[in-house]
Nucleic acid binder design. Sequence first.
DNA 1: CTGTTAGCGCTTTCAG
DNA 2: CTGAAAGCGCTAACAG
Lengths: 337, 337
Amino acid sequence: MKITINDVAKLAGVSKATVSRVINNPETVSENLRSKILEVIDTTNYRPSKVAQALSNKRTNIIGIIIPDFTNPVFSKIIVGIEDVFKETEYDFLMTSTNFAVKTEIKQIKMFDEKNVDGLVILTDQINDELRAVLENFTKPIIIIGSDAGLEKIPVVKIDNYRAAFEVVSYLLNLGHEKIVMITGDMKDKFSGELRFDGYVSALKRKGLKVQREFVYSSKYSSKDGYKAMTKILTRTVVPTAVFCVNDKVAIGVLKCCHDNQILVPEDISVVGFDDIEIASLYNPTLSTVSQPFMEKGRAAAENMLKMINGKEVQREIVLDHELIIRQTTAKIKRKK
Amino acid sequence: MKITINDVAKLAGVSKATVSRVINNPETVSENLRSKILEVIDTTNYRPSKVAQALSNKRTNIIGIIIPDFTNPVFSKIIVGIEDVFKETEYDFLMTSTNFAVKTEIKQIKMFDEKNVDGLVILTDQINDELRAVLENFTKPIIIIGSDAGLEKIPVVKIDNYRAAFEVVSYLLNLGHEKIVMITGDMKDKFSGELRFDGYVSALKRKGLKVQREFVYSSKYSSKDGYKAMTKILTRTVVPTAVFCVNDKVAIGVLKCCHDNQILVPEDISVVGFDDIEIASLYNPTLSTVSQPFMEKGRAAAENMLKMINGKEVQREIVLDHELIIRQTTAKIKRKK
DNA sequence: CTGTTAGCGCTTTCAG
DNA sequence: CTGAAAGCGCTAACAG
């Protein structure tokens, strides 16, 4: 049997209210009793039950975190950033992954709600009407990392995906590429994927180029899908001179596929990824990509969450900087093939 | 204000006991009242507070998970395995990473204890006396993934690290290599790191070879450390013909370093990793390594946890299979240099 | 400064 | 089958 506040009270010969006081407002208790109680607490190794405290306080000291996928370092780093900010607090995190399924997101939000989390951090790029409704009905502070859900009241931390993609494609265009394929994310994905695609489209347009249907492929953000898409691309009559991938994982798959088919990168084809995950700078060749500050995203979100929990106002939108990182997978086009 | 069981009771014109019954044992309530209450629950969108239930039931429906590092896919996959088993249950996970610090592990275990988790899954390879004590005093079911802590009562899920390392080195020996370096993990790491090192040592010994001091390097399991170690190795007068790395991340760093220094793999040096993370088969060249069933580890742990929570007995030790995966980074030695 | 009391939301005897 | 009442462990007025 675990020791409770009652046990401590009895052992110290005081009421449990007093014990509660030394736990929460030690200064309101006389030196005398306080040290006595503290001693009992120490010898009995008493720890207040957070569950009981939660019921009484309406505060669980738990934050819910919902991410699409634990195995993508992109999301893991955000978690690390969040953890970092909360390191010295009493907070813990209820975490769950959704595998990009909105249905699962909704289910989990409800679970977290029932478990009375004090706040919710959700990393998502797909927000449909149902999810929007659930989010709006959530009674505790929420912060979204990733996409602008267009929810008036919910603060967002993000980067400018549109702009970043636009820069990538403009860069490729400047290198002389015109046949630029994009391997996008899931087309159902309403936000970062779509915005990156939009950036691709408008960069082409500005150059007077049309987006060609057979130059757009989709993926589920995995290396396997990147490999598959590239395999398909290589069978086409018109082979592109550059491939812009929705993320680095896809790009790695593309690179691998090129290597397996004796296609030289960047000599034959230039490849650009997105995210700058660790492997981007370790791969052979090193991958040109867009870096974004994941840890910082987590930190910003966490700091905002902390503020919201304490009833303070926060910025509705935080846009962090991205950066085009040029490495070995991109080069000037040599001649028209 | 959130709706409570009392509200529902009033609206349905019954006592809260009855409402509680239809939630937990619907069959004990008359058809009549039941449907009435169900309707109220439905229209009010009432959800029982898990916190209140927890206080009453002494069950939070929360499992604590402690891992060293979210950014290592090795651990993430285990999480995915665990999640998978619990998918259809009411359980959620309080997760935290420790960055391999025993101190943090201990702190978090205590936090989780206070928060009344129903069980604890801990992925760790370093167990010192203090941690051992904390673990032994934990009142709820625990399951360890990774290392045999030598704790009588705590079930463990693991692979045979010693045997796997022994096989790797024997394989290298059979290819004709004799100058085999090992880049180990943190030497403070008592278990998987140490066991892999032990396997290395005894494979060499069996061949009548001595372990040479200057052939053993340590790392903190990161690519950066692998790169650093390899840089050092290349400055030595005696350059090895093979490098066995404690994990794939380190191996990737080694590979990158070789490439940056015009060392050909496997022509000049063979490299072997451990874990078979996704990038191992995507890297260029593809990495020879030991694969281990991470998802399965998570699943096995989760299944055991579920059993323990329900008071059933479980195996004290589950040893999963590993497999030596030979890819492009290893080759027969050509000639003595 | 300290103790008494009520209550957080739910479950569970115990009567009826 | 249903309701009243006690209790889970803690906090927070309210008196004294």
